[in-house]
Design a binder for these strands. Structure first.
Lengths: 317, 317
DNA sequence: ATGAAAGCGCTAACAG
DNA sequence: CTGTTAGCGCTTTCAT
């Protein structure tokens, strides 16, 4: 029979069994390392589970709605992993009807009965801030987010405020900035701090919502003659390749995206196969990837090689 | 009928019409900006054409074979865009039987009757080298590739040699290096040149097969006190984000990946719809993205802002 | 014009 | 235990 030359037709099979063995991954964008790493995990787990992966981009809430309807109602996929940009709450509760074929990623669905995988960005923001103060000795702080209203930015900012509050440190609104996540805006915001850093002798700490911003801030300050991390310590988010190849090396909060991707697929597939019926809520923590931009020379945690780089880059200034 | 509440079942439709309106994209990896930008173009064109996109990774030749069989024979997709890593020639001719549902990307299929989209890496290597010599005034040259045997690296190296030959410049084998494309190997190779650069007064030119390598070389040289681009000019490949945010800004050869992605989908879809029956061969050129790492002060082509950065970074050394 | 029926390739249920 | 059949949801053809 299947002596070595038979391929069952997937469509016919799907029609009969009423399942496609395909899952969808809906992303707000396809650009950047960020999604690449997520997709790696997704691909890996999907392969193990024997399902195919259909990838789509959906930018606006309307596109998101349309995509769900088309893919899920149309029976193109059995289930969907949804990384939403900015979902309105009522849209979310609408989705509850797809209860057992929809997993929401990186957006807390609260009590709505949907599988939900989250990154604890608030905790990550708090940890990053604490690191800046405790380990890098920052005395004044500034937060540079993405766009106001962006879920990740809002949560990281909340964590920033948590940490400031805990340690009784001032988190003045004038030192909270919003941006488009771009390197260029990081540069501009960094420049606006260069005089401040010259003036008072205290060490500043900058927490940026992604590595591009952090790099921009760092470059602006270095250009104006600041020594990193002595005059200003800087931490980014996402731990992209960039963080490892700039001078000084950039400390960054790492989100385990590959693992998250794997987890999403496994959760969804288990659900689709009826192995689980209660909605799951899973929260991942970010980890600190400490490098020279927050490592002061006397810090015992420092990585030797990274410290070498840090000091040699300071010598250049 | 379709008064607003009807979704035809995709599987049933596919079974009847014998087409799925889905295409597959097979990549050797899913990581890095590189594929992200390609996927953007693919997604965009696919959306316009009304087809879905299934994405899979296939690392080994065996996986590649298996993937084609499964997806195409199994009828999961109508056609496939194949970005192969290192296809053996006989495997390629095997694929000729999928003549009208397979497009090979970034690997020349020669006379085999398959749709074929290519990047002219040889020409790109030549252009990069000429730029180094003519515009950046390089007198001695070194080439840092990826792994030996890698198609992209081999072609870029061939272009490097073309340019050297044209201008009667020495392209000694001892200045041709292979690597794993990593920043770390770039660093190591760069270090091995630092004394050479101190010794003779001539300006060196480095052409690296990707931006990570180029960045590694640049950092190694800068650390040893070399001024870029005065002592050594450096050019990378792919024009990643990295190139725009390091100091000095890195010149890089840009491959129009998004456009390539779009083109692949359009070609494939047209073919599937019977609008074209002859195999197409399409070749894209890379463009020079000139920045400070190859821009000497008197160069009239220089971008003002980037030149500012270049000179200020030189002041630091 | 509108409506009934055949068949796409598979699996599961059933009959022999 | 093996072989036949019904039916998944759609489109297309054919008959009304």
């Amino acid at each position: 029979m299947h002596a070595l030359q038979f391929r069952p037709n997937r469509q016919a099979r799907a029609l009969t069994l009423r399942k496609t063995d395909t899952i969808g991954l809906v992303l707000p964008d396809l650009y950047g390392e960020f999604y690449g790493e997520l997709m790696r995990g997704v691909d890996q787990a999907a392969r193990e589970a024997g399902v195919h992966v259909l990838i789509t981009r959906a930018v606006s809430p309307e596109e998101e709605r349309a995509t769900v309807e088309e893919l899920l109602q149309g029976g193109a996929v059995d289930g969907l992993i949804f990384l939403v940009s900015q979902f309105e709450d009522n849209a979310l509760s609408d989705l509850a009807r797809f209860q057992d074929s929809l997993l929401i990623l990186d957006r807390d669905v609260g009590n709505i009965e949907l599988d939900n995988v989250l990154v604890d960005n608030r905790d990550a923001g708090r940890e990053a801030t604490l690191h800046l103060i405790r380990d890098a000795g920052a005395e004044s702080l500034a937060f540079i987010g993405g766009p106001e209203g962006n879920v990740d930015t809002d949560n990281r900012l909340a964590g920033f405020r948590d940490a400031c509050h805990e340690l009784g440190i001032d988190s003045s609104p004038e030192h909270i900035h919003y941006s488009d996540y771009s390197y260029e805006m990081g540069l501009a915001i960094g420049e606006s701090y260069s005089s401040l850093i010259e003036d008072d002798g205290g060490r500043w700490g900058f927490i940026a919502a992604n590595d591009n911003l952090a790099r921009g801030v760092m470059e602006a300050l270095v250009t104006k003659g600041a020594a990193i991390p002595h005059d200003a310590a800087i931490i980014g988010f996402d731990d992209t390749e960039l963080a490892r190849v700039v001078r000084p090396r950039l400390t960054s909060m790492r989100v385990p995206l590959q693992e998250i991707g794997r987890t999403c697929v496994r959760l969804l597939v288990d659900r689709l196969r009826g192995l689980r019926t209660e909605p799951a809520k899973m929260v991942f923590k970010a980890r600190l990837a400490q490098r020279a931009s927050t490592t002061i020379d006397s810090d015992p945690l420092q990585n030797t090689q990274e410290n070498e780089n840090a000091s040699s880059s300071q010598e250049q200034n």
